[in-house]
Amino acid sequence: MNLITRVGATWLRPTIESAGFAVSIGLQSLLTLPHLPRRMRATLDQMHLVGVKTMPVVLMVGFFVGMILSLQVGQQLATFSQQESIGLIVAPLMALEMSPLITAILLAASVGSAMAAELGTMKVQEELTALNVLSVNVISYLVLPRVIALTLMAPLLSLLVTWVATLGGGIIAVSQLGLSFEGYINNSLDSMRVIRETIPVPKYLFDGLLKATIFGFVTAVVGCASGMTASNGAQGVGQTTRSAVRNAIVLIIVLDFFLGKVLM
């Protein structure tokens, strides 16, 4: 009994409260969507920042994950002399599953954390309160540009990851599995032509980009909402940044499973 109340007080209640706050921030940012034309410049600035911050690392990680997949799966396939089908595996697996997930995790670590730190610093320095007193809508002024930027950039980066991973996979296919690059690429392109049953779009690309979009939104909302609840000075900002990254990653992985089920 004692344990249960303690867990309730120290973990469950704050978790539910912060989840509720994040949901309300997410909804409010959607409600301020009509302000987007006025926030175009800030949104473009944020998109630029996301690109600059993450492009090199996203490209490198994508390339290596493609090589890892191709090498490990290719060797397994080789034991049944099926290594030619590696081209049918890397591209769709990346597009549907790995790219959105990798992109989202990298975004959470680099951009989501930066958003939490930035808004957290503004919170503890009373800048958010000052905006409030000046009747400036904090959601529209600060949150909306960040949420839109990440929601748009995540699928774009995810697509890039798929490209470089397919390329990395191809290099392994040629150098380690003894396949022709042309055959590998043809297989990759063929595999991507699978059409969704419900709407006529390439299934793997569409489902993957949809996931990435949702992950981008979640990452930005969690980052902003965490920042806005920071307290206790610089130490509190550090704490809030860490919890933003952790919560975003956990949420993304859990969501990934359920979205996978729903989209199946």
């Binding site: 503004m122 320095q125 009373e126 800048e127 309160t129 000052a130 905006l131 007193v133």
Partner: peptide, 9 residues
């Protein structure tokens, strides 16, 4: 309202 620490953006 003049804030204790100016609170500029």
């Amino acid at each position: 309202y003049l804030f204790q620490h100016a609170a500029l953006i």
